[in-house]
Amino acid sequence: MTTATEQDVGYNSKIEGNVIFSSADAIINWVRSNSVWPMPMGLACCAIELMGVGASKFDIARFGMEVMRFSPRQSDCMIVAGTVTYKMAEAVRRIYDQMAEPKWVVAMGACASSGGMYRSYAVLQGVDRILPVDVYISGCPPRPEALIDGMLRLQEKIRTEKSMWQIKAGRPNPEKLPTGPR
């Protein structure tokens, strides 16, 4: 796998000495993307696959994302795994608000992405109505491989962000919220 490290921060100490020239964005994003601490928002069946990803066979630790933290304060990527009901939606949004910037959201599974097979009075039809979602993962439930793929795509996305600009401007990630009900 060619990472941003090799491309952007290409560095050989024999030739270049102990100094690295790179853009600040590349470094910040490299650091951020390789230490994603997910907040497992395990709501329903998909959470079981999420556990599977964390456990022995699929082992998400290989991608530097095994530090699952249930405290929103300590985590920077919320994996919404499961059906978000209207009753739960409030809690999901409040937990998201407690997460520190920068933060990302992964909607895992059909339910979190669109309401899935639960077209009913109690279910929020897609978590993107209350949160800005970065990566949607299809499946009911998505296979563990699909979740890993989604997380790698999130890493790719993080590497393209304009982090320095955000830090300088002293402002959080512009809210990518949908405007109003659809």
């Binding site: 499961g82 059906t83 009901t85 009753k87 109690a122």
Partner: peptide
């Protein structure tokens, strides 16, 4: 308090 996963 239950019902947070009431899907109907």
């Amino acid at each position: 308090v239950i019902g947070y996963l009431h899907r109907g």
